[in-house]
């Protein structure tokens, strides 16, 4: 008799719990069967009337039914919760192709970038990065560098003179002297910066451009040492080994003086418009520091010597990015600047 009741109840409860269309129906089915006042609870109360043997068997059966119904309920409850979450998430669809709000980062001037790169390189090799003034004394810009006023080399550098007698530095070389005055020997420095030449501006000439001066003063510095640093520098700039050649070049502040050419990176040395068919590009004037320049900096040339070099940063930037018009660099034109 009770067995029949239990079986009927089980069948009905499984049907209601299993087919409840939504979470609310599922919950009311749970209350109906599994609640404190639900069907299973009432049957449990009625079982007190049974014999102990019947009660044990019915109790076992009742527990089995309860477990089955609870499991079914939990399972369906979880399914409804999952479905609800899925529905919510589906509704939260976002179009991530929309650009972000606010401004995007700007870019640094290519000259700043290359300066930073070379400063880091030379710092890693024990060089200090030093600055000198853009407005210089005639002495620092010329005389101290072994270029007296009667020297024809002054013609090679069209100089801006200020009405107070000073000059706009025509090269970063005066920083050699300033660094020697400040630090003495031994010395390893580079000095990147802005320089000025009184030249008409066109696609390949600027009156304002950037150089990087380098200098090492120590005991017994040789041409071989200079070559070592120049090769390291060029490999770092171009991210590969470059073929170089060293030939005589005349600069009053070095003796011997050199022009260091690199094999043309465009044609690989076979000759093209960039290298004027020579296969070589002049890049790096350099040399052993002239004893008179060491003396200008207060350093005894019998005890110390060194090398120095000058790198045209503007030219380097143009080569690296293939910039065909030097005027872009000082134009402030964002169409140009935002490319870097």
């Amino acid at each position: 008799m009770i067995e029949t009741t239990l079986s009927d109840l089980e069948a009905r409860a499984v049907s209601l719990l299993g087919q409840a269309p939504d979470a609310a129906a599922l919950e009311s089915a749970r209350v109906e069967f599994l609640g404190r006042k639900g069907s299973l609870a009432s049957i449990s109360k009625e079982m007190a009337k049974l014999t102990p043997a019947e009660r044990a068997a019915a109790g076992k059966r009742l527990n089995a039914i309860k477990e089955r119904l609870e499991s079914l309920y939990e399972q369906r409850k979880a399914a409804f919760a999952r479905a609800a979450l899925d529905a919510r998430l589906a509704a939260e669809w976002l179009d991530l192709t929309i650009p972000p709000p606010g401004v995007l980062p700007g870019s640094l001037h290519p000259l700043s970038q290359i300066q930073k790169e070379l400063e880091d390189l030379f710092t890693s090799m024990g060089f200090a990065v030093v600055d000198g003034p853009e407005v210089e004394t005639e002495w620092h810009n010329f005389d101290a560098l072994n270029i007296p006023s009667t020297h024809p080399a002054r013609d090679a550098q069209d100089t801006f003179w200020l009405t107070d007698g000073h000059v706009l530095r025509t090269h970063t070389s005066p920083v050699q002297v300033r660094a020697m005055e400040k630090f003495g020997a031994p010395l390893r420095i580079i000095a990147p910066g802005r320089v000025f030449r009184n030249e008409e501006v066109d696609a390949s000439h600027e009156h304002t451009f950037y150089q990087l001066e380098g200098m090492m003063v120590d005991r017994d510095v040789s041409i071989g040492h200079m070559l070592y640093f120049m090769r390291t520098l060029l490999a770092a700039i171009f991210h590969r080994e470059v073929t170089v050649r060293l030939r005589p070049g005349f600069f009053p502040f070095v003796e011997p003086g050199f022009e260091l050419d690199i094999q043309c990176l465009i044609c690989g040395g076979s000759g093209c418009a960039v290298c004027k068919q020579s296969g070589w590009v002049e890049l790096l004037p350099c040399g052993l520091v002239h004893p008179n320049v060491l003396r200008s900096g207060g350093i005894d040339p019998d005890e110390w010597n060194g090398f120095a070099f000058g790198l045209g940063l503007t030219r380097l930037v143009m080569m690296r990015y293939g910039i065909d018009d030097i005027r872009h660099l000082q134009s402030g034109d964002l169409r140009f600047l935002s490319q870097f």
Partner: peptide, 19 residues
């Protein structure tokens, strides 16, 4: 000058002045 081999100077290390 192309007969001069590049060679690293063997000088004591000095920590450079930091700008």
């Amino acid at each position: 000058y192309d007969t001069v081999p590049p060679s690293a100077p063997l000088q004591p290390v000095h920590r450079p002045w930091i700008n």
